[in-house]
Write a protein that binds this DNA or RNA. Structure first.
Length: 572
DNA sequence: GCCGTTTTCGGCCCGACTGTTTTCAGTCG
């Protein structure tokens, strides 16, 4: 029961690629790309919209709206089918090889009739690419190399892995003589849930020492490109890291540019053009005189465009530029706003650290409250019993008396059974300060049954938070197939919070689902779901994800004072 | 193909690097 938006997005993106492959107008291809993205990110299911409704989505005009209606009604889009008849699907797949774009892909198809990776490898081995115009020996090497990379996964890496590497590199480059500023930018600064490559920016007068130091870092396994202003390396794990060095005076414009996203940059550059300005990574310039207007800080650049500084986590072209222009940017929830963690484990069930260690680490993080929520009996391998839970409660109450700045809450993470019921009867649950409830099994029920299951859990008078609501594991397990809007509505109606699980493998809810849920008026809990003391620090990734979902302090129950939180937990 | 408080036509972000080129096309971000 997934929304059909993603499916339509993929189809329009395919058409955009095919327009390029067939040598069509590049601006037309871009128009389809923009529409694809707009539809993919639109809050309402396009299946429920007519042509008129579709045209209200930005960048969707008459032509695309009609094509989408045609597709939703007949299951086909004639324009796409037409091109598919002429261009085998494999040709488009060739474009996935780095350094191989639409022009080379179509040249390979038209001259050598290559339309699959296998055929391309065979042609390479037979030396058949050598006679082609525009294909020299280096091109051949690059294609071989690209194929090898693609086969070696070359996947995006989890947010925390990229973050740890980036912070290492920033520390190393900051120590190089002449470094005025150094920071990571790109999707990492925007806190996307996975990272394809790392962008590092340095401000310095002389770039040479940084390029030199960068290529000699212990992480560097291979130099991809090496220039005076830009150098790219690949780590042993296959992650690409780009270093750009800009003059100190260009720091703000450079950071703005390299943080992206691409779509956000296009939006801000268009705004610049409308103001007779030109925006590049070197600064904001007057179009007529060519004189630099501003460039030192991001704040100056945005201000000259008539905008407040836009937090990097919002820079996805999801309306942040328009909201900024109107003075309607949300005051995003920040790490400092988090007063406590409401979903954590100890070694009583499947955690690794003892209760005392978890509590001490939480206190060091400066929390004013902290909930211990070990698993309930249904996850039988964890061997939880009524007696163990009650004994733990005594230890929690005793510890609570020792910590003066931090109140301890005794909670549990209930298992939502296949029918929506939870382990432990209501009478026993009354003794807990907070109950998180999550799905841990039976992932393949019908969408209708799955939806009923989650809605029923929300309606339970003792369930306060739905933990990792879609149960996805990024790159491993798909999200539950259910009617999310029905679940979101149930949460809003019953006073049940949705979790933003901060574990980098989960980040569940995702940014897009947070945006959808917020429209229903749902409240959220950003939790670490820590299973050891080191996991408590994952909170930063949950906060980043919440920011990407435009959440404010008021949306997040664990930023609230304890009295307001307790009132919410009563579900009155 | 989309869009509009300069425009319903004529724009559409912009620069770096590579490779195969004798002046630039393709790709990438």
């Amino acid at each position: 029961m997934a929304r059909r938006n993603k499916e339509v997005e993929a189809l329009l993106q395919e058409y955009a690629d095919l327009v390029l492959i067939t040598g069509g107008d590049a601006f037309k291809a871009r128009a389809y790309e923009k529409a694809a993205r707009a539809i993919g990110g639109h809050h309402a299911d396009v299946a429920g919209l007519d042509a008129e409704g579709l045209r209200e989505i930005p960048n969707v005009g008459k032509s695309i709206a009609d094509k989408v209606v045609e597709y939703l009604r007949t299951g086909q889009m004639a324009a796409v089918e037409d091109v598919r008849d002429r261009i085998p699907a494999g040709v488009r797949e060739l474009m996935a090889i780095p350094t191989l774009g639409p022009k080379k892909a179509v040249a390979l198809y038209e001259e050598l009739h290559i339309s699959s990776l296998t055929e391309l490898v065979a042609a390479l081995d037979e030396g058949r690419l050598r006679d082609m115009k525009g294909f020299g020996p280096k091109t051949e090497d690059n294609i071989r190399h690209g194929i090898a990379l693609m086969r070696a996964a070359g996947d995006r890496v989890p947010l925390n892995a990229a973050m740890e590497l980036a912070e290492d590199i920033v520390a190393d480059l900051s120590a190089v003589t002449g470094c005025e500023r150094c920071a990571y930018a790109g999707s990492l600064r925007r806190m996307r849930e996975t990272i394809g490559d790392i962008d590092i920016l340095v401000a310095a007068d002389d770039s040479a020492p940084f390029m030199e130091a960068f290529t000699r870092l212990p992480h560097t396994a291979e130099i991809v490109v090496g220039g005076a202003k830009k150098t790219s390396v690949r780590t042993a794990e296959g992650l690409q890291v780009d270093l750009r060095v800009v003059p100190p005076d260009s720091w703000g414009a450079g950071l703005q540019y390299f943080t992206g996203s691409r779509a956000h940059n296009i939006r801000t550059r268009e705004l610049a053009v409308h103001n007779r300005l030109k925006l590049s990574e070197y600064g904001l310039f007057d179009t007529e005189t060519g004189e630099k207007v501003v460039s030192k800080s991001e704040e100056e650049v945005y201000a000259r465009l008539g905008l407040p500084w836009i937090p990097p986590t919002l820079r996805e072209d999801r309306g942040e530029v328009r909201a900024g222009a109107r003075g309607e940017l949300p005051h995003l929830v920040g790490e400092k706003d988090i007063r406590g963690d409401l979903h954590t484990h100890t070694d009583l069930t499947d955690g690794l650290s003892p209760l005392e260690d978890m509590v001490r680490t939480a206190a060091e993080l400066g929390y004013t409250y902290y909930a211990v929520t070990d698993h309930a009996p249904d996850l039988y391998m964890q061997r939880m019993t009524d007696e163990k839970a009650l004994a733990q409660r005594e230890r929690v109450r005793a510890l609570d008396r020792e910590y003066h700045g931090m109140r301890l809450l005794h909670g549990t993470e209930l298992n939502i059974g296949p029918d929506g019921g939870v382990d432990w009867p209501e009478g026993f649950l009354e003794g807990f300060d907070i109950c998180v409830a999550s799905v841990h099994s039976h992932f393949n029920q019908s969408p209708e049954a799955q939806t009923r299951r989650l809605v029923k859990a929300c309606e339970h008078p003792r369930v306060n938070v739905i933990g990792h609501p879609t149960t996805r594991i990024i790159g491993k397990r798909p999200p539950l197939d259910l009617d999310l809007d029905a679940v979101f509505a149930a949460c809003a109606r019953t006073g049940t919070a949705l979790e933003v699980n901060s574990h980098p493998d989960r980040l569940d809810l995702s940014d897009e689902n947070i945006l959808r849920a917020k429209r229903h008026g749902v409240k959220f809990a950003i939790d670490s779901d820590a299973h050891s003391v080191t996991h408590l620090a994952y909170m930063r990734y949950g906060v980043g994800t919440a920011q990407r979902g435009w959440l404010t302090k008021d949306d997040v129950i664990n930023t609230w004072p304890l009295t307001r939180l307790r009132a919410f937990l009563r579900k009155a």
